[in-house]
Simulated scan of single mutants.
Amino acid sequence: MTELNDAFENALKDIKKLTTRPDDATMLKLYALYKQGSVGDVKGDKPGFFDFVGAAKYEAWEKNQGMSTDEAKQQYIDLVNKLGS
Results as ranks from 00 to 15, higher is better:
68 S>E: 05
23 D>F: 05
21 R>M: 09
24 D>I: 05
60 A>I: 04
65 Q>T: 14
70 D>F: 07
7 A>F: 02
69 T>C: 03
85 S>K: 14
21 R>L: 08
67 M>L: 13
73 K>L: 03
22 P>E: 03
37 G>S: 13
7 A>D: 13
53 V>P: 00
33 L>C: 10
46 K>F: 03
28 L>H: 07
67 M>T: 10
78 D>M: 01
27 M>C: 11
16 K>H: 07
5 N>C: 03
43 K>A: 11
12 L>K: 15
30 L>I: 14
27 M>F: 08
74 Q>T: 09
28 L>Y: 09
44 G>N: 09
53 V>K: 15
31 Y>L: 01
28 L>T: 04
32 A>H: 01
21 R>V: 01
11 A>M: 01
64 N>W: 09
6 D>K: 11
7 A>M: 04
64 N>K: 15
7 A>G: 03
38 S>K: 10
30 L>P: 00
16 K>Q: 12
21 R>P: 00
16 K>C: 02
10 N>D: 06
4 L>C: 09
31 Y>V: 00
73 K>T: 06
5 N>F: 04
37 G>V: 10
30 L>G: 05
67 M>S: 08
69 T>R: 15
9 E>F: 02
63 K>E: 11
50 F>Y: 10
48 G>F: 03
11 A>C: 06
49 F>Q: 06
27 M>I: 15
45 D>H: 05
62 E>K: 13
3 E>G: 03
81 N>S: 12
35 K>E: 08
60 A>M: 04
74 Q>C: 04
21 R>S: 08
82 K>A: 14
4 L>F: 08
11 A>P: 00
62 E>H: 08
12 L>G: 06
29 K>C: 03
63 K>T: 07
13 K>S: 08
52 F>Y: 12
27 M>T: 10
51 D>M: 05
4 L>S: 05
38 S>R: 10
44 G>R: 08
76 Y>P: 01
71 E>G: 04
58 Y>D: 05
31 Y>A: 00
82 K>F: 12
44 G>L: 10
2 T>L: 02
81 N>T: 11
57 K>P: 00
12 L>S: 08
63 K>D: 09
36 Q>K: 04
44 G>A: 09
15 I>R: 01
5 N>K: 13
10 N>M: 06
81 N>P: 02
42 V>I: 15
75 Q>P: 04
35 K>C: 06
10 N>F: 02
34 Y>F: 12
38 S>C: 07
70 D>I: 02
78 D>L: 01
74 Q>L: 06
6 D>H: 11
82 K>Q: 15
80 V>C: 00
48 G>W: 03
77 I>A: 07
68 S>N: 07
26 T>K: 02
8 F>S: 01
51 D>S: 14
40 G>C: 07
28 L>M: 13
34 Y>S: 01
79 L>F: 03
15 I>G: 00
43 K>W: 03
54 G>F: 06
